[in-house]
Amino acid sequence: MKYKKRFILYFVLLAMVLFIMHMIRTRLLSPDFQHRDVSEIAQEDTLRIVTDYTPLSYHISGDTILGFDYELAKLIAKRSGLQVKVYPEVSLSKSVEGLERNRYDIIGRPIPVTTDSKEYFLFTDPILLNKQVLVQRKAEYNNGKKPIRNQLDLAQKHLYIISDAPTRLRIMNLAHEIGDTIYVNEENTYGDEQLIIMVAKGEIEFAVCDETIAQEMSKHYPEIDFNTDISFTQFQSWALRHTSPLLLDSLNTWLNDIKKSPEFQKLKTKYYGKKRK
């Protein structure tokens, strides 16, 4: 009886192991987890890029789609000869999930290149320079209260960022640098532009976002001040899976060619030409 029970136990364990192995194999062979690099993309003749839904990356004006990253994707289509499909997505985490599951081949939105982010992505050669800034109201729109200029004054303050933004890590490091707590409130529904509008209207006191977005929004909301830096100037690039090294090589070739062209200079001036006031 003792050996019979032991045999049944071994049989059950073996069945469980075989079942788990079958599930893993099925998962790995599913379309979401199949290897996808240059040859697979060329076979499909379609490059799928997910970008941010913001005034700078991708937005709709009348019956026209505009945006730096959208228009850059179209230049890549010209250089590569591939069909390029661009998908707007506010959530960075959903963009990352889509990249991991092969729904997208490239995250075409500004992502700071840091030691931490390199653990998760392959990055193209730098496309832009950017930095994170503190968005707050100017004194004349805030009962005479002067904007914060010293990062030490951020102690015990509540800063709003979009959910899953790389900005969280920078703020955590900043809190460590000043030796005090900085509270981070993540917004799960809205994007950077909505947070800036909330600051302009006095609904929240502080937000942190890319300087380029704040600069663009300041054209429509003169109430905001974005002259206090939260980070140093950083390279920003597009991101790929670690399993797409050949695509990275091809993409860098296309981008380096594009960056030398008059088309790119016009595009850069169109969206980033004006200096910060």
Rank of each mutant, 00 (worst) to 15 (best):
D257H: 14
V184L: 02
K131C: 06
I213S: 03
D153K: 03
L134N: 06
Y104A: 11
R149V: 11
L240Q: 01
K94H: 10
F33T: 11
N102E: 05
L152C: 07
K146S: 05
T51F: 00
H220P: 00
S93D: 01
L251S: 00
V184F: 00
P126T: 09
R168P: 07
I182F: 04
P222R: 14
K131Y: 15
I106T: 04
Y141W: 15
S244Y: 00
Q194R: 12
A239C: 06
Q236C: 07
L75D: 04
Y160S: 09
T51D: 01
L18S: 11
Y120H: 15
F232S: 08
P31F: 02
I224F: 08
L255S: 11
T54E: 03
L29F: 14
I60A: 12
R276Q: 09
T26Y: 15
L134H: 05
V84S: 03
T26A: 14
Y141T: 05
I204D: 02
P262N: 07
D69G: 00
Y271G: 04
S30P: 12
R6K: 04
D164K: 10
I76H: 08
S30E: 15
L152M: 11
W238P: 01
E223P: 01
I161E: 01
R48N: 01
K260P: 13
H242K: 10
K138Y: 07
I204Y: 03
G273W: 10
R79G: 05
G179H: 10
L154K: 14
R6A: 03
D69C: 03
K268Y: 05
K268M: 03
I230Y: 12
K2S: 08
E203A: 05
L255Q: 05
I106K: 08
I162D: 00
E223S: 07
K277P: 15
L246V: 01
P31Q: 12
S250R: 14
E211I: 07
F123D: 00
T54P: 00
V96Q: 11
V12H: 09
I65H: 10
H59G: 04
E205K: 05
S61L: 05
I230A: 11
P222T: 08
L13A: 14
T26Q: 15
C209M: 12
F232K: 04
Y190H: 12
M217V: 15
L154Q: 12
M1P: 06
T189E: 02
N185C: 08
N173H: 12
S80Y: 10
